[in-house]
Computed example of a mutant assay.
Amino acid sequence: MVKIVAIVKKKPGHTREEFLHHWNVEHPAYVRELPGIRRYRQNPAIAHRKEWPYDGMAELWFDSVKDVAVAYAGPEAEALFEHERLFLGSMEWFIADEVEIDLAVEARA
């Protein structure tokens, strides 16, 4: 399984609340329509006195890189992109493997 990792910034002029409404409430309906998607997770940056360089990160799981290409080649992706233009100022992404590290295992020297 592979996943898309996307780091996002809200559109300039949007409040945190506007951004989160578009992303957390509206956007999942568009993501659900992508063919072959297995899992979707949003990671909004916490409200903080410091201004973070990004407003959040999303993870989208697929069975293969080929499935990612198929998902983003169809009309479902066009609708998703159109919705993103309403609230995203920028997005950077990459496709990744996930490697889980067992923290219970002692480090070997």
Rank of each mutant, 00 (worst) to 15 (best):
L103N: 11
W93L: 10
E51N: 10
W52K: 13
K11T: 06
I101W: 01
M57D: 02
H14S: 13
V2K: 15
R38C: 02
R39K: 14
Y30N: 07
F62R: 08
A71I: 00
P75C: 01
E33S: 15
P35A: 01
L34W: 00
E78K: 14
R39I: 03
M1K: 11
A73L: 05
I101Y: 06
V31H: 04
W23C: 04
L86K: 15
D63K: 13
A45E: 11
V31W: 02
N43Y: 08
F19E: 00
I46R: 14
R85N: 13
E26V: 15
V68A: 01
T15I: 07
I4R: 04
I101H: 05
A104S: 15
D55I: 00
R38Q: 14
A96I: 08
R38G: 08
H14C: 13
I46Q: 14
G56E: 06
M91G: 01
Y30T: 07
E98R: 10
R16S: 12
W23Y: 01
F81P: 01
R39N: 13
F87W: 00
F19H: 02
Y72G: 08
G36V: 03
P75I: 01
V70K: 10
E92C: 02
R39M: 03
K66V: 12
E76I: 02
E18N: 04
K3Q: 09
E84R: 15
R32N: 11
M1Q: 14
G89Q: 06
A107D: 11
A109C: 07
L86W: 04
V2T: 14
R32L: 07
M91R: 15
F94S: 12
E51L: 10
V31N: 07
V2M: 04
V105Q: 15
I4C: 04
N24W: 00
V5I: 14
R38M: 09
R39D: 14
L80V: 07
I37E: 01
A77W: 01
Y40H: 13
